[in-house]
Design a protein around this nucleic acid. Structure first.
Length: 577
RNA sequence: GCUCCCAUAGCUUAACGGAUAGAGUACUUGUCUUCGGAACAAGUGGUGGAGGUUCGAUUCCUCCUGGGAGCACCA
C-alpha cells in the first residue's frame, strides 16, 4: 500500500531533520505521525498533521517544520506533489497512474486486502446471533446476525481463519413459561402442521405463560417447578421440551438461510450447564469464587468489578456459571483461538467483564486478552416499546416479507429479485449505522429502499452491468489492458473515481480494526453516488477510443467494488432488477 | 446509593483530536427525447447548556440538564 510507503518515508524524513531527531529519539514516532485520506479531495490523496503535532515539542513554527519534512522527504515515483497548507498540514498527491493500475487489477477481480492478523494463529471466533428457543427471532437478532456475518467476512478478507459460533438459550425461566402455556392450552400440538403455525403457537404460548407468571401466583409456582424439571431432565417434561425446541431450531435454521448466514457450531445452553457447574465448583475450591448467602459468587470488588452469582443457592449454575463451560468448549474445539468476539448488547458489559476476569484467573495463557465483547446496540421501536412479553415484537420473517411486498409494489420486479432486495434492504439498514447507535426503528423510515439504501447500491451495480453488457469482450479486455490510457487525459469525474477505488482496501482494513461494518457501507454509498454523477455527465458507450476504454474500465471497476463491498457486508447483488 | 453509556437539521443518522460537521428523508426548485429515472443538480435547516485542555474539539476533561442501562441468586 502506498499509505505505508508514505509513512515509512515520513519517518525517514523526520530522522533527517536534525532538530527533530534529538527530541524524537526520546518519544515514539508513531504517536506523532498520522496519515489520513482527507474527505476533501482538494487536500490531496493523503495528508499528515505531524508538523502541527511537533510544533510545541520542538518549539518551532509548524510551517517551518513542514517545509523541512518536505525538503527531506525521499524522492519517489509514486508521489507527484507535496503541498504545505495553512497552519502546517502536509498534503501528498499520488501519481495517478497508480490509481489506474489499481483499477485494472480490480477490474479482473484481483482484490488484495492488507493483513490484519489478530494473533499468531490467525484464527478468530465470532459468536453471534444467539436467539433463545421458544421465542421469536426479531429485529434485534436481525441486527446482530447482520453485524456478526459482516464481521466474519471482513475478518476473513484481511487474512484470518474465522470460526462462526452461535450460543442459543434453550433452558431457563422463559422456556418454562412457554412450556407452561403449552401445557395449559387447548391446542393440540399434533394438529400444528407447518413450521409457521408451530412458531406462532410457541410465540403466543410464551406471552401467555409470561402473563400467568405475573398475575397468578399458582402459575408462578408451577412455572418454577417446570424450570427445575427441565434442568433435571425430568422425563415427564423432556419430550415436550425437546419437541418444541426442535421446532425453534428448525425455524432459526430457515431464518439463517434466508439472510445468507450459517454457523460452524451451534452451542446450546443445556449442553454446557453441567460443565459450567463443575468448573464453578472447581474454582470455588481453588478460591477464585467464594460462598455468600448460600450462593457461589465472584467478588469482583478487588478488581473494580461487580459481584456476580455463578451458582445460585439452589445449586444451579447461573448464566455466569454456564459461560465458563461455554468458554472451555469454544477455546478447545477448534484449536487455539487468538480472539473470541462476542456480538452482544451493552447491558451485558458487566457480565462479560466479570466472566472474562474469572476465565483469566482460571487460565491466563488461554484466556487473557482473547475474549472480546463487541457491543451492538438495541433496535428500539420508534412508536411503541418492543417486548416479547407484550407480544409486540417485530419478527424477522414478517419484516422481510413486508419490505419485499413494498419492493414488488413500488418497482414491479419478480419474486426472486424482490427477495434478494428485501433481505439486502433490511441488512443494509442496520449495517450503515454504527454498531453503537440505538436505532429508533420505524418500518417505513428505517428500511429504506431509496436514498442511502441497498436497492440504490444494487441499482448502481445493475446499471454498470447493463452498460457493460452492451459492449463486447474484446473492447472490454482492451479497456482493461490498454496501457496507452493515460491519466493525463482524464477529467475531474474520472479521476475522482479512480482515486476513490484506491481507497477500498484501506477502508476494509479500517473496518476490521474498528469492528465497524458501517465504514464499508459509507464507502460503497459514496462510490455509488460518485459513479452516478459521473454517469449522468459523461457518455460511456458513445465516447470514443481511449476515452471510451477508460470509462468502460471505470464502469467495470465500480461494479466489481460494489459487488465485493456488499459481499463483505453479507449482502447479495442481482444482475437485473 | 454506586457505576457505565447516550444526546448532532422536523425525523433517521455519519464523522482515527483535523481543514468548509457528511448523508438520507421531508419540504422548495430544477436537469433529461437516457448508456436502465430505482438517476442527477440546487436550496432551506444542525453539534443539549456552561467552563477547560489544544495550533485545532461532535470527539478528550469538569460541572449541569435530559434520556437509557447495569450493580446476588433471570438469561
Amino acid at each position: 500500500m502506498i499509505k505505508n510507503e508514505i509513512l515509512k518515508n515520513l519517518k525517514e524524513s523526520l530522522v533527517k531533520s536534525e532538530t527533530s531527531l534529538k527530541i524524537l529519539k526520546q518519544v515514539q514516532y508513531d504517536k506523532f505521525i498520522d496519515l489520513q485520506s482527507p474527505a476533501n479531495a482538494d487536500f490531496g490523496d493523503y495528508s499528515t498533521s505531524v508538523a502541527l503535532r511537533l510544533a510545541k515539542l520542538l518549539k518551532k513554527n509548524p510551517m517551518i517544520i513542514a517545509e523541512e519534512i518536505k525538503k527531506n522527504f525521499p524522492k519517489t515515483d509514486f508521489i507527484e506533489q507535496i503541498e504545505i497548507i495553512k497552519p502546517g498540514f502536509i498534503n501528498f498527491w499520488v501519481n495517478s497512474n497508480y490509481f489506474l493500475d489499481y483499477a485494472r487489477k480490480v477490474s479482473e477481480e484481483k482484490f488484495e486486502f492488507p493483513s490484519y492478523y489478530l494473533g499468531k494463529n490467525k484464527k478468530v471466533m465470532v459468536e453471534f446471533a444467539h436467539p433463545n428457543t421458544h421465542k421469536l427471532f426479531h429485529i434485534g437478532h436481525l441486527r446482530n446476525i447482520s453485524t456478526g456475518e459482516a464481521m466474519v467476512r471482513i475478518l476473513e478478507a484481511v487474512g484470518n481463519k474465522v470460526v462462526r459460533s452461535n450460543y442459543q438459550g434453550d433452558i431457563g425461566l422463559h422456556i418454562a413459561k412457554c412450556i407452561y402455556g403449552i401445557k395449559n392450552s387447548k391446542v393440540k400440538s399434533q394438529n400444528l402442521k407447518t413450521l409457521k403455525e408451530k412458531t406462532e403457537f410457541i410465540g403466543k404460548m410464551y406471552t401467555k405463560g409470561t402473563k400467568a407468571y405475573e398475575e397468578d401466583s399458582k402459575a408462578k409456582e408451577e412455572i418454577i417447578k417446570i424450570n427445575q424439571m427441565i434442568y433435571d431432565q425430568d422425563p415427564e417434561i423432556l419430550p415436550l421440551w425437546q419437541k418444541t425446541k426442535q421446532w425453534s431450531l428448525e425455524y432459526f435454521d430457515k431464518v439463517y438461510k434466508r439472510v445468507d448466514s450459517h454457523f460452524d457450531r451451534l452451542y446450546l445452553e443445556s449442553e454446557i450447564t453441567k460443565r459450567g457447574s463443575e468448573i464453578s465448583q472447581e474454582i470455588f475450591e481453588k478460591g477464585i469464587l467464594e460462598k455468600s448467602q448460600g450462593a457461589i459468587v465472584f467478588n469482583g470488588k478487588k478488581y473494580g468489578l461487580d459481584i456476580r452469582v455463578f451458582v445460585n443457592s439452589l445449586g444451579f449454575p447461573t448464566y455466569e456459571g454456564k459461560e465458563l463451560g461455554l468458554a472451555e468448549k469454544e477455546f478447545s474445539e477448534f484449536g487455539e483461538l487468538d480472539k473470541n468476539i462476542h456480538v452482544v448488547t451493552p447491558e451485558q458489559t458487566s457480565f462479560f467483564k466479570v466472566t472474562f476476569k474469572v476465565e483469566e484467573l482460571i487460565d491466563e495463557k488461554k484466556y487473557k486478552n482473547k475474549q472480546f465483547h463487541l457491543v451492538y446496540e438495541w433496535v428500539r421501536l420508534k412508536e411503541s416499546k418492543m417486548s416479547s412479553r407484550e407480544g409486540n415484537v417485530i419478527e424477522a420473517d414478517w419484516l422481510i416479507d413486508k419490505i419485499k411486498e413494498k419492493i414488488i409494489k413500488q418497482f414491479n420486479c419478480n419474486n426472486k429479485t424482490a427477495e434478494i432486495l428485501g433481505v439486502a434492504s433490511v441488512k443494509y439498514s442496520f449495517l450503515k449505522n454504527s454498531t453503537q447507535t440505538v436505532i429508533a426503528f420505524d418500518i417505513d423510515e428505517s428500511i429504506a429502499v431509496d436514498g442511502n439504501s441497498a436497492p440504490y447500491l444494487i441499482y448502481t451495480y445493475v446499471r454498470c452491468q447493463s452498460v457493460l453488457r452492451k459492449t463486447n469482450d474484446v473492447t472490454l479486455r482492451k479497456a482493461q489492458g490498454d496501457r496507452s490510457i493515460m491519466v493525463s487525459s482524464t477529467n475531474h469525474d474520472e479521476l475522482n473515481l479512480l482515486r476513490k477505488f484506491y481507497q477500498f482496501p484501506e477502508v476494509v482494513l479500517k473496518t476490521a480494526e474498528n469492528y465497524s461494518p458501517n465504514f464499508i457501507a459509507t464507502y460503497i454509498y459514496g462510490l455509488a453516488s460518485q459513479f452516478n454523477l459521473f454517469y449522468q455527465k459523461n457518455p460511456i458507450l458513445k465516447s470514443e477510443k481511449e476515452t471510451k476504454e477508460l470509462r468502460l474500465l471505470i464502469t467495470l471497476t465500480t461494479a466489481k467494488i460494489i459487488k465485493k463491498g456488499l459481499e463483505l457486508l453479507g449482502i447479495k447483488t442481482v444482475e437485473k432488477m
